[in-house]
């Protein structure tokens, strides 16, 4: 048993934990992500209540009945930022989604807690969501390929992107209503 323990300790001492996969892959804090999405971070978030028909639609997108009563978002003009949590296999994945003119311009995993499938944090996966929009049937406008061994996490990302696109649409429509009157 002594040799393995010695080997392990040596490994722990000399393993290059300081190496980062890529500077771009560094975890962003929620505040940093929101600030990066705007020239100047809005002072206060908007709040969208998930009630009535909106609640029914969200339940369809998430395929479950339990979800928040309110969604906070940050907005400047036609750009909104949403910080959403969705369960992968057993743990919630915290994701930032930036949408402009009803298209995703960025999707970034901010906190990944699952033991498998951490590759979904990287642009090689998340860039697939760029320019994706919602179809009339509230599906994503193009297919998204998953990560091997992380099917549930990639399904969670699809739900998050659909939800953010839907909520953005609601915010824009609510904003447009007084002008129509």
């Amino acid at each position: 048993m002594y040799l393995p323990i010695t080997l392990l300790l040596s490994l722990l001492l000399f393993f290059p934990f300081h190496l980062r996969a890529n500077e771009q892959t560094e975890y962003l804090s929620t505040d940093t992500y929101i600030s990066a999405a705007f020239v100047q971070k809005p002072a206060t978030p908007g709040i969208l209540w998930a009630t009535g028909d909106i609640r029914t639609d969200i339940a369809t997108i998430l395929r479950r009945k339990k979800f928040p009563l309110r969604y906070r978002y940050y907005r400047q003009g036609n750009r909104t930022v949403w910080i959403l949590n969705e369960i992968g296999k057993v743990m919630p994945i915290t994701t930032g989604v930036t949408i402009e003119d009803r298209k995703i311009i960025d999707l970034t995993v901010l906190i990944y807690r699952e033991s498998h499938g951490s590759e979904i944090r990287f642009p090689a996966y998340s860039n697939q969501f760029n320019n994706v929009e919602l179809t009339k049937k509230r599906r994503l406008s193009k297919p998204i390929n998953g990560i091997s061994g992380a099917t549930l996490s990639t399904n969670a990302m699809k739900k998050v992107s659909r939800l953010a696109l839907y909520l953005h649409k609601i915010v824009m429509e609510e904003d447009a209503q007084p002008a129509q009157k």
């Binding site: 393995p4 080997l7 392990l8 490994l11 393993f15 934990f17 190496l19 996969a21 890529n22 892959t25 033991s115 951490s118 590759e119 990287f122 642009p123 090689a124």
Partner: peptide
């Protein structure tokens, strides 16, 4: 046992387990 896991790059992951 003890397992070390992680990302060496955006596309390469590793696991080492004793």
């Amino acid at each position: 046992g003890i397992k070390l896991s992680g990302n060496l790059s955006q596309k390469i992951t590793y696991d080492l387990m004793m």
